[in-house]
Write a protein that binds this DNA or RNA. Structure first.
Length: 219
DNA sequence: GCGACAG
DNA sequence: ATCTTGTCGC
């Protein structure tokens, strides 16, 4: 019932091309989600820990947390990050007792060489609205957004807008937002700003990040 | 052909 | 991702 682990790069790319048609890019997606899930993965040698943190979309308080440990089963290859993190993340998401209205991923969605980054993959497999928030540039070109929080510029790839470079804090390096599944770009950015009242990264990913590291450390 | 390259 | 000290600033 699950996509089996690919044995090669070519096989992994073929899976992405096969799943891409299942993407729902009609939006708009939740503008006031009551539950938002943040996902992240931490590594240590040949082991990894996946974490899911569900926050109240209004208060940003943590509602539920889940972590899952597993062996690393796929080497990191730019463009194929999902095959490294997806299995454990799906496992963790499956153990939630609540269903989030939106999933915020660490990384990219549509802004991807084959238009099928981690956020798209996770969205399609779970059927839930998902967006990607990357910390560094990956694909596409862009102009530096204005210095104030809320400023943004288009992330363009092959002549099309695949994401947005968004400043979440005054004078701080911007983040790279792209759509994953069942959410449009405006709604994605709106949610990212709502999730970043004090820091550069969404509270969801900050909580998931801490959680995954502590799980690795054995706490 | 040679680099660059989410995490 | 991870390996790592000190340092600037609120």
């Amino acid at each position: 019932m699950q996509t089996q682990a690919p044995r090669s790069v070519a096989e992994a790319e073929a899976i992405q091309d096969e799943l891409r048609p299942l993407l729902d890019l009609t939006g708009p997606g939740p503008r006031r989600p009551s539950l938002v899930a943040g996902v992240d993965v931490a590594y240590a040698g040949d082991r990894l820990a996946a974490a899911v943190a569900v926050l109240d979309g209004g208060t940003l308080e943590v509602v539920e947390q889940v972590t899952v440990g597993a062996p690393v089963a796929f080497d990191y290859v730019p463009g194929l990050l999902a095959f490294r993190e997806l299995p454990a993340l799906l496992d963790a998401l499956g153990r939630l007792t609540v269903t989030p209205d939106l999933i915020v991923c660490d990384g990219y969605g549509l802004a991807h060489p084959r238009r099928f980054g981690l956020a798209c993959h996770l969205g399609v497999l779970t059927g839930l609205p998902a967006i990607g928030v990357g910390k560094t540039a990956f694909v596409g070109s862009y102009a530096e957004p204005g210095p104030e929080r809320g400023s943004a510029s288009d992330l363009t790839l092959d002549g099309e807008v695949v994401g947005r470079v968004l400043r979440t804090r005054d004078g701080v390096k911007p983040v790279f937002v792209s759509v994953g599944h069942r959410v449009d770009l405006d709604t994605a950015c709106h949610n990212v700003l709502a999730l970043t009242p004090s820091y550069r990264l969404p509270e969801t990913t900050r909580v998931a990040d801490r959680l995954s590291r502590r799980a690795l450390a054995g706490l």
